[in-house]
């Protein structure tokens, strides 16, 4: 039932008008941000960014071994072909895939006129495209690592 507001009229008989009932908050915790897509995409973006950064430091050093000798490079790169490292590479590709797709989402939020309005939808698009890419990459990589 709509709430009734009673207006104080100039004359003694009060006028009654219908006003819509105030909408119940659909936001748990009373915030647009905390606990929602915006926050989780930021958490994941930050964690993946740091993980990729530390891998990049190591990766520049291991690649630099081509300048030392073929033997040195082959020994160290051999470590990347073990099953445990193979699974690590899968995690790393997953991390960079998310960071790249969500990075494009951030860019669209910042530069696309209606980007902010669609940020939630774009987050689920990011997850969907990420899933498709990983479904394509995972069996191929596992075959390379475990010799399929």
């Amino acid at each position: 039932m709509p709430a009734k507001a009673t207006g104080a009229g100039v004359d003694s008989s009060p006028a009654t008008i219908d006003v819509p009932r105030p909408r119940r908050s659909v936001i748990p915790g009373g915030t647009l941000y905390r606990g929602n897509e915006g926050m989780w995409s930021w958490v994941l973006h930050r964690i993946t960014g740091v993980a990729i950064y530390f891998f990049l430091l190591v990766h520049i050093l291991d690649t630099a071994l081509v300048r030392v000798s073929p033997e040195a490079y082959n020994v160290v790169i051999g470590a990347y072909k073990t099953p445990i490292m193979g699974l690590g590479e899968l995690a790393l590709v997953g991390a960079i895939g998310f960071h790249a797709l969500n990075g494009l989402r951030i860019i669209l939020v910042d530069f696309w006129g209606v980007g902010t309005r669609h940020q939630k939808t774009m987050f689920y698009v990011v997850l969907g495209v990420w899933l498709v890419l990983m479904i394509g990459f995972t069996p191929r990589h596992l075959m390379h690592v475990f010799g399929g």
Binding site: Y73, N74, I77, Y80, K81, G86, E89, V93, I96, A100, G103, L104, I106, I107, F137, R140, H141, M143, H144, V145, G147
Partner: peptide
């Protein structure tokens, strides 16, 4: 970021997906 998407995608494609993937790297 925009350039890195293209560069990293190509990097992973050539080194990890095409050919024999990680086992071809030496």
């Amino acid at each position: 970021g925009v350039f890195l998407v293209a560069l990293i995608f190509g990097h992973l494609l050539v080194n990890l997906v095409l050919g024999e993937g990680v086992s071809q790297i030496d």
